[in-house]
């Protein structure tokens, strides 16, 4: 058993696991980590199941002190900086021992970082998952200074690096399919979505990220009956400002969705930072499926290699 004290936690630092898929019909989004690939990588690097509970760290950063025990950990996602017995980059595995402190803070790139533990993090479950749902706070919960978290069956691990795949990087060119509610927008407005230089703003959280750029207001009056929303929906409010909805999104809503970011591109999108530029590129649904399959195959190879490199305990 190991115990960790939170010395500092920035906003939006929360417990996550594989999430709670399949309950959108009850108003419950999937939640889980924003960078699912990095989260899986951190867990696999420790020999954990891919969806074991860990901590998602925002650009606000996190500092933990180990009060008791010896706890192996893995950090993956973004170009974050770790301070623990010296300074090094994320994408690494090490062991935190009683009296030692681990700090995770933003580095040269990326917005989200995942911390996995060699052991079982004790955190509340909601609907069978420890992932935190930001709006309600249900699930494992947010981290805050002064808390003490317990990790059962904690074990030490040998230090090593985790390979950082190319796909882990933020990307400024993001592929979408148009719709499903393009009918509320003039053709020129759809063209503007696809040609304008967009920027990430400071208005971001686990529910979504608002973008800055030209106004792309819907044409028709907004009397649309609420329609289902997916993670990746590009929703445009009445003021013409688009937002990309993320892991803790509402499940239905009455604002039209001009486009939808490919699910397999969301990791590349969420690692962008405020003021970073981005552009949207429309692809056909058939192309979207091909892109997703190719990415899934690359991820599967990466995960398999990670598992093979992970020492058995």
């Amino acid at each position: 058993m190991a115990r960790l004290r939170v010395d500092f936690a920035g906003p939006h630092v929360s417990v996550q696991d594989a999430g709670r898929p399949g309950r959108m019909r009850f108003g419950v989004p999937g939640s889980g980590p924003l960078d699912r690939r990095a989260f899986t990588a951190a867990n696999l690097a420790l020999g954990n199941p891919a969806g074991a509970a860990g901590v998602e760290v925002s650009m606000g950063g996190l500092r933990l002190t180990c009060l008791e025990g010896e706890l192996g950990y893995a950090v993956a996602g973004g170009g974050f900086i770790l301070e623990h017995l010296g300074k090094r980059g994320a994408w690494s595995v090490a062991t935190l021992r009683a009296g030692e402190t681990l700090a995770i803070r933003p580095g040269p790139w990326g917005s989200w970082c995942c911390l996995a533990f060699a052991g079982r993090l004790q955190a509340p479950e909601w609907l069978g998952a420890q992932a935190t749902h930001a709006l309600s706070g249900l699930g494992g919960g947010r981290l805050a200074a002064g808390q003490v978290w317990q990790v059962d069956d904690a074990r030490p691990v040998l230090p090593r690096a985790i390979p950082c795949p190319v796909a882990a990087r933020p990307r400024h060119d993001i592929r979408v399919t148009l719709g499903p509610q393009t009918r509320f927008f003039a053709p020129e407005t759809v063209e503007t979505l696809l040609t304008a230089p967009w920027k990430v703003t400071e208005a971001w959280d686990r529910m979504g990220m608002r973008l800055a750029g030209p106004r792309i207001a819907p044409e028709a009056a907004l009397d649309m009956a609420s329609e289902p929303i997916l993670r990746g929906s590009v929703q445009v409010a009445g003021d013409g400002v688009p937002s990309v909805l993320l892991a803790d999104h509402q499940t239905t809503g009455g604002y039209p969705k001009i486009a939808t970011v490919l699910d397999c591109e969301l990791e590349a999108l969420v690692q962008l930072r405020p003021r970073d530029p981005l552009r949207f590129h429309a692809v056909t649904p058939e192309a979207a499926v091909q892109i997703a399959r190719a990415q899934a195959a690359r991820d599967a190879r990466y995960f398999k290699a990670l598992e093979q490199e992970t020492p058995r305990c």
Binding site: R25, A225, S226, E227, P228, L230, T252
Partner: peptide, 15 residues
Amino acid sequence: EAIPAYASLMIRFDP
């Protein structure tokens, strides 16, 4: 999963 709304149903699938 399927997500019902007022006038539509969203079907999610594994691509």
